[in-house]
Design a protein around this nucleic acid. Structure first.
Lengths: 163, 163
DNA sequence: CATAACGTTCAGTATTGACTGAACGTATCG
DNA sequence: CGATACGTTCAGTCAATACTGAACGTTATG
């Protein structure tokens, strides 16, 4: 395994761990970002030196987050994985969901808290997260324009299909 | 302790835990959001049913994140804590720091990865996070305007100092 | 100067949860 | 229909870490 790939894998492992998700999830994401082929579950387990069980669980979690994609190949019973077309925008969508929960929590608290100042503060927190959600929509839209333009300039007609 | 306060405290505990920080940190933040007084370390420990050691550690962590503020009172040797004026914008600043790290990681990988498609993907990830950082600045600025306006409308000249 | 009231640090404990290996269910092939 | 090759689930293990109680250093106070 190429040294730069390995470095990215390990760094993504630590980054993802800091964000609260399991270390192996970061390794999978890092490896799939680096390679252009769709990789089978067994291959992932072997390359990342992890058990099939762990890779299976974490890959499905990443799929849930919309960051990687399970792809089936005709004539092959194995599952293959590749990174999603735009994993980061999808990641933001997940974050938006969490913020929506916080909006709900703050909204409820803003109505029921005993102290007026506390209510005002929590109401402010609610508005902040609502703004966050709205701005994220705008950000994603802007990113789609930027990203599409840059990719076309760099490599017209991309999306290599791997193996 | 008022039921709504307790509910907010526990929900913030779970939210913060999900984000990867200790549960008691969330409790402290929730309680300080709800109450308008500056609270001593002992009081926090008693109200949240936690040890002084734990509260001390987590309070300093929250202070590091810029979400709460340690305030000293003349004639009193105790430390008091209150929530920062705008904890959420400060939270975003911390997130920006993490994204800057990711920009660095992706930038390095984009130069060294063996496969061209991988390089393009990682370079795209780098650009995305740079956009994220830039947009956050704009968001914070917009929030400052919105928040100031709304607060003035609701309670001209607030920032009650508590006990 | 001794005592008391702080906050912090540290060793120890307990709990969480990530990870593994084996068993399982299922589909494909001979 | 048996055998094989998958992915998933589950019980068990292990490491990380949140949390606690006690000891410590420090500052005020009688």
């Amino acid at each position: 395994m190429h040294e730069a790939v390995q470095q990215l894998v390990e760094r993504m492992a630590l980054i993802c761990e800091k964000e609260g998700m399991p270390r192996i999830g970061g390794r999978i994401l890092g490896y799939l970002l680096a390679t252009d082929q769709t990789v089978s579950l067994d291959d992932l387990a072997e390359r990342l030196q992890a058990s099939k069980a762990s890779v299976s669980t974490n890959a499905r979690m990443l799929e849930q987050f919309g960051m990687i994609q399970r792809v089936s190949v005709m004539g092959d019973r194995r599952d293959f994985y590749r990174v999603e077309d735009d994993p980061w925008a999808r990641m933001l969508r997940v974050a938006q969901g969490r913020w929506r929960d916080m909006v709900h929590v703050f909204g409820e608290a803003a109505e029921r808290l005993p102290e007026p100042a506390g209510r005002a503060r929590v109401e402010s927190a609610r508005r902040f997260h609502e703004l966050l959600i709205a701005e994220c929509d705008a950000l994603i839209e802007r990113w789609n324009r930027l990203d599409g333009a840059a990719d076309e300039a760099a490599a017209p007609g991309r999306r290599a299909t791997g193996s």
